[in-house]
Structures are given as structure tokens and as C-alpha cells.
């Protein structure tokens, strides 16, 4: 059954001490590090946003001479890579989300109704055998 997120307190918070401890250690290190007081910052009068845009697309000519990043061609490659990764993620999400009925794949975004949610088939992609009830109901429908 679907449960709403519940805040559980008590012993289950115990591992959280690790997170706190990590914070403590890291904070100690950060505070002990001698950072320079002043930030270098960006030169006056340039638009950071547009500089980022030029850098992303390797528009070297348009970048301001002062405070520019310089050789930005690799950014273009990374940009394209990110586009590909996002595409792949989208496709993967669709694949993961689709479900099968009567052996036919039903797209996750399909407008065709497959009945109420209770009768949805579990995808047999991995060891779903742990959940006996859903398996058995699926077995009857087949």
C-alpha cells in the first residue's frame, strides 16, 4: 500500500549521527583553512550571465577580454554531452516506467486507460518474487 512519507523518530535517527559528525569534521577543516579574506570577484560592468552564455557556446569573440575564461571549446563538448545524457535519461525513465499488459508494452504516457491501478501488472524486470501477493494476482490474470 502506498504510504505517505512519515517522519520517524527514535532509533531510526541513529545513523544521522554520522551525517552530523561528517559536518563537524568538515566544518573544522573549513574553518581551519586560511582562506583569503577578500574574494577576487568579477570585473565591474560585465554581465556574468551573458559571459556564461558566450562561454558555453564557445563565442570567444564576444567574450569580454577582462575576466574571460579563455579557451572554452571543451565547454561546447560538455554541453552537447549533457544534452545527450538528458536525452538518454528521458528515454531510460520512459523505459523504466512503462508497464506490460497481456505481453504488450503500454507506454507510461499512453492515454489508453488500462483499468484501475490495482490491476496493474508488475514488470518482471527483477526479483519481484519477494512480494508474493502481487505475483499471485498477476498470475491469475495471465
Amino acid at each position: 500500500m502506498t504510504n505517505g512519507p512519515q517522519l520517524r523518530l527514535g532509533e531510526s535517527l541513529l545513523p544521522g549521527i554520522l551525517a552530523v559528525a561528517l559536518f563537524g569534521v568538515m566544518a573544522m577543516i573549513a574553518l581551519n583553512t586560511g582562506f583569503a579574506d577578500e574574494m577576487v570577484g568579477f570585473p565591474e560592468g560585465i554581465s556574468v550571465t551573458s559571459e556564461i552564455g558566450y562561454a558555453l557556446f564557445d563565442f570567444t569573440a564576444l567574450q569580454s577580454t577582462e575576466g574571460s575564461i579563455g579557451n572554452t571549446e571543451p565547454f561546447l563538448v560538455s554541453f552537447l554531452l549533457v544534452a545527450v545524457v538528458l536525452d538518454a535519461a528521458l528515454d531510460a525513465a520512459l523505459v523504466l516506467a512503462k508497464r506490460e499488459t497481456e505481453g504488450k508494452p503500454i507506454a507510461a504516457l499512453s492515454s489508453v486507460s488500462t483499468g484501475d491501478s490495482a490491476s496493474t501488472q508488475p514488470a518482471a524486470t527483477d526479483g519481484g518474487a519477494e512480494d508474493g501477493s502481487s505475483r499471485s494476482s498477476g498470475g491469475e490474470q495471465r
Binding site: L18, L22, V25
Partner: peptide
Amino acid sequence: TNYAALIVTGFIALVIVLGVLGGWF
């Protein structure tokens, strides 16, 4: 969750060891 806890424990130990050796504290 347990795996994550183990990883974090290891990481903390690593940071502490490196920190003590490198004088970060």
C-alpha cells in the same frame, strides 16, 4: 541505508586520518 552508512563512516575515517596526517585541524 546501511551501505550508505558504511560508506559515510569510511569517508569520515579517511578524512580524519588525512586531516591528522596533513595537519588540517
